[in-house]
């Protein structure tokens, strides 16, 4: 899947979970930069991403998710 399409789908998930679009998608974007993206909403976001891409994360993957760029590459490695 193309990176842009992956990002577009992630963007949809974020908007639907967080209820706003006050963020810009770029590789260095981290959860701290986005209002409302905390440890709790993080799990909901991950679940929605899993459903969207039909993949399963591992606990160890979680620690590799440092920013948007790493999220995209972890997703890419699984589809």
């Amino acid at each position: 899947m193309e990176i842009n399409i992956i990002k577009e789908k992630i963007n949809h998930v974020l908007i639907s979970v967080l209820g706003h679009n006050n963020f810009e998608m770029h590789d260095e974007l981290t959860a701290n930069d986005v209002d409302g993206w905390d440890s709790l909403s993080h799990m909901i976001i991950l679940t929605n991403i899993e459903e969207t891409f039909n993949i399963k994360f591992k606990l160890r993957d979680l620690n590799k998710l440092k920013n948007m760029g790493s999220l995209v590459s972890v997703i890419q490695s699984k589809i």
């Binding site: 440890s39 709790l40 799990m43 909901i44 991950l46 679940t47 899993e50 994360f57 606990l59 979680l62």
Partner: peptide, 10 residues
């Protein structure tokens, strides 16, 4: 919390 909520995320 993180491992637990991760395993119960569904």
């Amino acid at each position: 919390f993180t491992p637990l909520s991760f395993s119960l995320r569904s």
